[in-house]
Design a protein around this nucleic acid. Sequence first.
DNA 1: CTGAAAGCGCTTACAG
DNA 2: CTGAAAGCGCTTACAG
Lengths: 326, 326
Amino acid sequence: MSRPQRVTLADVARAAGVDVSLVSRVLRGHDVKVLDETKQRIHDQARELGYRPNAIARSLRSAKAGAFGLVIPNFSNPVYAQIIEGAEAAAARRGSVVMTSSGEGWERRAWYEALDSGRVDGLLVAGGSAVELESLRVPYLLVNRSVPGVHRHLVLDDEGAAAVAVRHLLDLGHRHIAFVGGPSDADTASRRAAGFRAEVDSVDGVSGVELRGDYTAAGGRAAVAQVVDTAVTGVVAANLPSGIGALEGLRDAGVDVPRDASVVAVHDAEIAEYVVPRLTTVRMPLRRLGARGIELLTTLSPTDEVAEVVDAPTELVVRDSTGPVR
Amino acid sequence: MSRPQRVTLADVARAAGVDVSLVSRVLRGHDVKVLDETKQRIHDQARELGYRPNAIARSLRSAKAGAFGLVIPNFSNPVYAQIIEGAEAAAARRGSVVMTSSGEGWERRAWYEALDSGRVDGLLVAGGSAVELESLRVPYLLVNRSVPGVHRHLVLDDEGAAAVAVRHLLDLGHRHIAFVGGPSDADTASRRAAGFRAEVDSVDGVSGVELRGDYTAAGGRAAVAQVVDTAVTGVVAANLPSGIGALEGLRDAGVDVPRDASVVAVHDAEIAEYVVPRLTTVRMPLRRLGARGIELLTTLSPTDEVAEVVDAPTELVVRDSTGPVR
DNA sequence: CTGAAAGCGCTTACAG
DNA sequence: CTGAAAGCGCTTACAG
């Protein structure tokens, strides 16, 4: 396991008896008009010496980092895992790596500066405050969230997802439906609320009540407690933890799911399989969100405005927490 | 929102009427013997122009990337979220960022080469095959796993964690205990099995049966099905999904937890709160693992051998899935 | 077909 | 106390 010193282009050039610039061109495949024999010698020596291009030097010279940044508020949320996968795949197709980080442990501003200093060609921002964005030099794009005054974002069809959930309950005969919302500062939550409202109002004789939530299980549990003695039989939770909390709250109150009430949550992840009863969800195209984010970053000029909704479909995943109204 | 062109050291030097080298020293705080007035002028101009050092140029010159890499097999596993947090905090203390990636979408080898080209000062490897490691130039460290023949790893006290789980069940009076193991290629699983065996064998009159599992819920469910009609009253699951599966398997068989059987799993995460009954777990010092990994990377020479166990304590988290034997 | 030169933006001895 | 020079490892016109 000998760990050779770094081998440079100059080392290969010397070994092959040619100029360093020729080695560069041949190794990058930039030059067809080179004698096969010379080409061969260069490749042979490069392999022999174990040459590996220095990405940093290349970046400096070409002013391209070959990397994208992805800011994730917290890695525990399974939603982000899928965004990361999509972004990595899309970046790989362009020969770039994705560097994901939460910026934990850094003063947030310092962290942004550490990234925005040539290390990345673009930044996907899934969390964090918008304040830092203004001073960014590198092109950025908000992902799965929008911020007033920042016209660079790519979001999911949150309205549509909530509507799909409501539609599922309507199809099962539910006529009194509650919505467990999210925190007021989450724009995803207000879009889901709007989608809920629109779908509920689109059918006569259907009532929809909006409950305050906070995207946590505790919040979902508290919210449903308010409707256990009402006519409500269907619950749409704005996210997965809220839905899990709703399940708990109903069980606490002695309400059987899905016999006496149905619950469906926006977003899907493995955890939905583990709770009892298994939770019906609306799956969002998160991989596509990550991939499309990278695409936009490479396509758009840094000053272009974007306000795009991912066009891939949401998908209802029926499990055991929803059933016909009795 | 004007996006200024990149401002370089030369721009600041020109504006302040001094040499570029002086600007570098002053801005880096490397030089005390500079006229306060000059110092002031340099700082003023830097701020005025919005100067931001180019990390790439600095890296090339100083042969330090100011970044560490962290290879994570899959982001969905909450265990890794905590490792990432610990690593980020430790790196931040050293002025470095952590770039996390699964290498998804890349041919694995190509991906390692993309990182091992000056982009990082060291690599923490939590997953992936050991084959690629041999050709790495950058110092690396296996984290939470060991590989035969690779003497660079930092692991958790897996034996101890399993022992803590067994001890908890013994304390509750259980005398017939089953262990739901992991896949044969997971070294964490074999260490946990060893810890289970040692602790069970340390007390007279206690029987321990080792069941085959695969670190999934389905595996855990299938495993416990084999012991429902035996004397077994306590189950130690080698990881969280196995424990959740064990819970499901027991419910399927009509066994009430914790009345008729107890379940405790190694590793803790939020999901343990969501299942029914809430799962008793052994929490591992994952943040510490990540932080210590970065520490070792910065301390060790690339050729040093390491085989360290994280010295922070594991912690029993008693919830509702364990109770006294009846 | 190949080479020599310039330069990306810094940092670090070395002078003065 | 400050400046001038060299150089990190590449790439890219420009010559020849």
